[in-house]
Design a protein around this nucleic acid. Structure first.
Lengths: 201, 201
DNA sequence: CGGGATGTTGAGGCAAGTCAATCTAAGTGG
DNA sequence: CCACTTAGATTGACTTGCCTCAACATCCCG
């Protein structure tokens, strides 16, 4: 657990290795994951007070670089470019959130999963992966809570895609994309994010 | 129509009166509205290239103040506070989008509508409205596309809330909140946005 | 007063959820 | 090295909430 909803956040992090999930909980236990962060991404709000509005939890073992918030603000005030850079990143993040909203608001189960796989694949490719493979360090429950589905629906969607020959599943956490164009088509994503760094929260 | 997805955007707007909807379309016509902007809100990306990643369309008659993009960037480079302010606004917008993601990803129809009404009410109250009334300039189709529902589901949800005595519907575009606590409870929102200005797109 | 657009209501279907059983893989201890 | 346990994933049977399709109601606006 990195920090929890409502709690004060003392640092801004830059992930140097591993994966983080961000989520919010409802009182009755329903959970919505709002995003996953990977190596290179930034975690933490640039707001001054900043009690976390969501929970950040490790999906894998992590390595990160932590900046004390006050030090971070010092940088922010001192280097005018920094705020502008962060503003661009925040703008990109809003765009990403919109894409996600379209996915969970208007797409069916298989389309959601396809979009998820395609997006993750793009991020791994960016990170140097050359094979058409997606690593899924997170559980099916995490995927479901990210896509607004149940575990079972996620599992069935995987099976259907496998049955259609679009993917292979050598292990639950390793997916081979056998037909990337078909997957793209199913995902129906307008523009994959061109950026390399995500601003989390 | 203010600007359309993919098209170049020449201005940054500050809404001085009226309401705008932002949305994205899928090829088959499915639509997801990602947000509504009201008086005082800002519309436009602070990115330099900026072809719109979503469509902005008027819901009502509008009045707005338009800044040419280049002039806006001049301001952005000249006043270091401005980028910081916009960064805060963008951060708030991300938070709002997360809330919206929770709503459409994990809540049932009536909860979604309750959350919608409560949020809009908060914005009208902020704007000086003292009665427990919500004005809905947008159509049922717009509400559905915002909440990830069909027109019919929205209409039925309105009827159920009315039947439960939580709201009155003197006209389709005018909702009286008869039991605000119950509505809040149903909505299950953790924190209503404290901010007054929304950054659109 | 029509007539078109918007909103409401009803009947029935289906995609996704729920509940439950089974399978798999990774420990863990004898 | 092998039973036993446990957590996660898959699959099946059934239920249900929302969608679809269709009919009807209401409201503007000439």
């Amino acid at each position: 657990m990195i920090f929890e909803e409502q709690s004060a956040v003392h640092d801004v992090f830059i992930l140097t290795d591993g994966m983080v999930k961000l989520y919010r909980l409802l009182e009755d236990g329903r959970r919505q994951i709002t995003g996953f962060l990977v190596t290179g991404d930034i975690l933490g709000s640039p707001k001054r007070e900043a009690s976390a509005h969501c929970t950040a939890q490790a999906v894998t073992d992590l390595q990160a670089c932590a900046f004390e918030r006050s030090a971070f603000f010092g940088l922010l005030l001192r280097y005018r470019d920094l705020a502008l850079r962060l503003l661009i990143m925040a703008t990109d993040e809003i765009e990403t959130q919109h894409e996600h909203t379209v996915i969970i608001g208007r797409k069916r189960t298989d389309e959601r999963l396809a979009a998820f796989l395609v997006t993750l694949h793009a991020r791994w490719t960016e990170a140097g992966e050359t094979e058409e493979v997606v690593h899924l360090p997170m559980s099916r429950a995490d995927i479901g809570d990210y896509l607004g589905l149940t575990i079972e629906s996620v599992s069935r969607a995987f099976s259907r895609l496998k049955g259609a020959g679009v993917i292979d599943i050598p292990s639950p956490h390793r997916i081979v994309l056998r037909n990337l164009p078909a997957l793209h088509d199913l995902a129906g994503l307008e523009h994959l994010p061109a950026r390399t760094v995500t601003l989390g929260l």
